[in-house]
Design a protein around this nucleic acid. Structure first.
Lengths: 232, 232
DNA sequence: ACCTGAACACCGTTCAAGT
DNA sequence: ACCTGAACACCGTTCAAGT
């Protein structure tokens, strides 16, 4: 009965040997397609063509598209490095990690969509999770609080970066017109005088800078909050 | 040149009058389909059938599927209520709001996927944004910090709830087998002794309860952190 | 003004058949 | 063991045509 939950990482790969095409090759090509064209740009047919293979050949290496995405997704986790908290202190390590996670997502915008859709059980994700647990243990948390503190930081970074990625995608990083944006938001915010206040600030002239400030503000707040829990 | 960014909310609706079918009717039907079958369960064809209409009739009321989703998405924001900070204090108001946002997303799991994909420019979203700004002003923030504090809280709630929704979807709230889950994660976490520690805790026996605790832990931390900024 | 069906250009996935 | 093409059951969207 229990239609149990599945993941690439819970199944043995087809083979240890590397015959004709390989899973790595496929994942690499998928990553290229994803980075260039986004999540919508990856189809099994296109990926097959890119590898000069029939679209359906890929199904020998990968059970389905979702598992392929899981594989690609884990590569993003490989780019997130956790500094050693013993060397730089837990707070600095957490801060550097947070910025690194944000950057990795900005480099691979398609990963933002996957966050809420696929489990992160790959070796790279696990490696990061393991290091993060250590980080918060070094900080002084114990028991369930280790995972709670971990989740808090991760949730903040993801929650902050997901909309940022969406925003970049919606308006395009290039050809951004501050006046047009201001006009759009002003229109949407009509009838909300308090919201309109925001328009009069220069947030729309250099949105990248403002978002970096926002990220930092929140990060400091979250870390302050976690530090307070340690004192209690 | 500037392929400018679009949203339903920036275009005038077709008509003020309500002739045969109406936009509201369509959105209501879409919401039902989404709640029952999820994001993948909504197709223009199925929605048309549900309204005993041709699939393509809908295109008279709505420019495309994304705009329809924007419309549905805004209905979720209608369910998030912001208590009056003058009555209950900003911290209590923020806390109640945070729980409300989480509940709204858990009620409409499909909205978690939309967060990172569609702008939230609808009237209901704007209404919440406006009230949230007021909340943080009452708290004592000023200038850009109002929006920064706002983003911090929102990011935390979304970042925490998106994976929660995904988790529910992946394993199903019903027919959850703690032992199977423990086995799966143990397998994925092999070679990471520190991670494995977590298995020995009873987190898998009542995941709902543990996640509620995690949410509360993080929320208190975030609010503590914001409070600290006020003192500075 | 509103609704239709046919048609276009796509999807992911299965499967019998080939080598 | 690996790869193929045909086929199935879908998509969103356009558009000429109807009323």
């Amino acid at each position: 009965m229990s239609k149990s939950f599945t993941s690439v990482w819970l199944r043995e790969p087809r083979k240890a040997t590397t015959p004709g095409r390989s899973r790595e090759e496929i994942v690499r090509a998928a990553l290229e397609l994803l980075d260039e064209e986004g999540l919508g740009g990856l189809s099994m047919r296109k990926l097959g063509a890119k590898l000069s293979a029939g679209a359906t050949s890929l199904y020998w290496y990968v059970a389905n598209k979702d598992e392929l995405l899981e594989l690609a997704y884990d590569e993003v986790w490989a780019e997130m490095i956790v500094p050693d908290p013993d060397e730089v202190g837990w707070r600095e390590a957490a801060s550097v990690l947070a910025y690194g996670m944000r950057q990795a997502m900005l480099r691979h915008p398609w990963s933002a969509d996957l966050l809420g859709r696929l489990p992160a059980l790959g070796p790279n994700a696990m490696h990061v999770a393991d290091k993060m647990r250590r980080l918060f243990k070094v900080a002084g948390f114990s028991g369930l609080d280790i995972d709670f503190a971990n989740s808090t930081l991760t949730a903040y970074v993801f929650g902050m970066t997901i909309p940022e990625v969406a925003w970049n995608a919606a308006i395009g990083v290039e050809n951004y017109d501050p006046d047009e944006m201001r006009a759009s938001v002003t229109k949407a915010a009509a009838q909300f005088p308090d919201l309109l206040e925001r328009m009069h600030m220069d947030s729309y002239d250099d949105p990248q800078a403002v978002r970096a400030m926002a990220f930092d503000f929140g990060l400091v707040s979250v870390l302050d909050g976690l530090e307070r829990r340690l004192a209690a």
